[in-house]
Design a protein around this nucleic acid. Structure first.
Lengths: 236, 236
DNA sequence: GACAACTTCTCTACGATGTAGACTTTAGCC
DNA sequence: GGCTAAAGTCTACATCGTAGAGAAGTTGTC
């Protein structure tokens, strides 16, 4: 019954050797399934069939664990630095990030919040990689470094803003989406919130994808014309 | 030594009657001064010279206390629904909200995060008021309700995105601003983060106000031209 | 095989947190 | 005075992160 290499035997997800990967995966799974508050050291230990304290080999503390999770999620984002059509690239990345956020909505608060309490240089490297790569992309497309930074800021700012907005309106329980929404709106005092209440139906039809795309169009073309020097289109 | 009406006697901030206002003010002060984690029931009780349990008269639980704080902060934002120049209004509100965020940086995570876990209709009313008022503003300026919602989304999304961005780069310790920034960047592996490292000086000169204003210009003019029907300018 | 050195995992324990429930104190009114 | 309701307090408990000491498991060398 000794399985010398890796594969565990019968009794469930038991004693395979832990690793940072395994721990972070389990953590992400847990967060996706039950939310951030469910991710306690004890609970995660239990999920892995280990003593909670064993986790401290793979993350210095709970905060580091959270950082690991955000890092892992951001790694799912692919950025191709060589594409010369920066607008198309930024547009695609934007949609990808949106989908990422919809796939891991419970992680979004981390994505958005943790950088606020950590100076730039001390963040997990995986977190900074998108920034670096987008800068590379823009610079390769002909922007000066300083302009690239401006574009990045406007772009990423808008992107995160959109994601927050969309997740706010997205109800977690997909069944109750419309019902809860209206029920919610129903509770608002009619005299103070006439417009909001009237928008119930429109709110229910929110299409985040096209909304994002329209916003990106405005932003990208605006950026392209505002910044004088750099290339408008990589066409002949 | 009996002071019949209100004013406490010598020994420090003692036994004045509590109220929701007083509690929330103290909570906000605490958060501003020492951050969100410092806001525990026990600590706040101590700050008010009261038993922690007394706070539950004024907020159902800790989450409700946090909601109260965000509500209180958002109340500092003034919106004038009657102004017909919607672009100017949105621009002003944007700058106001930015300043609000800089005044209460520790509250921003709440502003951004709490709506994610609460369906729209169940949020504290004070939180929804800006939304309602901006809708009113846009509709009064001639937009259809649905278009007003689109404008609102793009606008607020961009705005929150900008604020998050700016706070990320803003170092809490104003003295060490440049030093910490560079020290931080210094730690990055040179081969993986060449562009980011090179941008150190530029990062240090970040002027959030003009950055915001430029972004708003792009966005507002883009929105004005994209949406066919509504008025461009309230002139002539 | 035996031993040693090291890594990984577990046990126990401590202080801090949110908050339920029963109690005491206070304020306002007759 | 006494009565009632509100405001504030006390005690207690489950749960959290994590320090520190030790046990178990792994690996390398003979």
């Amino acid at each position: 019954m000794t399985s010398p290499n890796g594969t565990t035997n019968s009794s469930g997800p038991r004693k395979a050797r832990l690793s940072r990967e395994v721990v972070l995966s389990a953590a992400l799974e847990l967060v996706d399934a039950e939310g951030l508050e469910a991710l306690t050291m004890r609970r995660l230990g239990q999920e892995l069939g280990r003593d909670p304290m064993s986790l401290y080999r793979y993350a210095a503390n709970r905060a580091a664990l959270l950082d690991g999770v955000t890092e892992r999620v951001l790694n799912e984002l692919a950025i191709f630095v060589d594409d010369r059509d920066w607008q198309a690239q930024l547009r695609r990345i934007g949609h990808d990030l949106r989908l990422l956020a919809l796939r891991h909505p419970n992680v979004v608060p981390l994505l958005v919040t943790r950088p606020l309490s950590t100076p730039l240089g001390l963040r997990p490297l995986g977190t900074l990689r998108p920034l670096e790569q987008i800068l590379a992309l823009l610079i390769a497309a002909g922007f000066s470094p300083a302009d690239a930074l401006h574009v990045y800021r406007a772009y990423y700012g808008f992107l995160y803003g959109h994601i927050l907005n969309e997740l706010q309106e997205y109800i977690v329980d997909p069944d109750e989406n419309e019902a809860v929404l209206r029920l919610g709106l129903h509770r608002l005092p009619a005299k103070e919130f006439p417009h909001l209440r009237a928008l119930g139906p429109v709110l229910a039809e929110y299409d985040g994808d096209v909304e994002l795309d329209q916003g990106l169009s405005i932003l990208l073309s605006g950026l392209a014309t505002q910044l004088s020097g750099p290339p408008q289109q990589p066409l002949g």
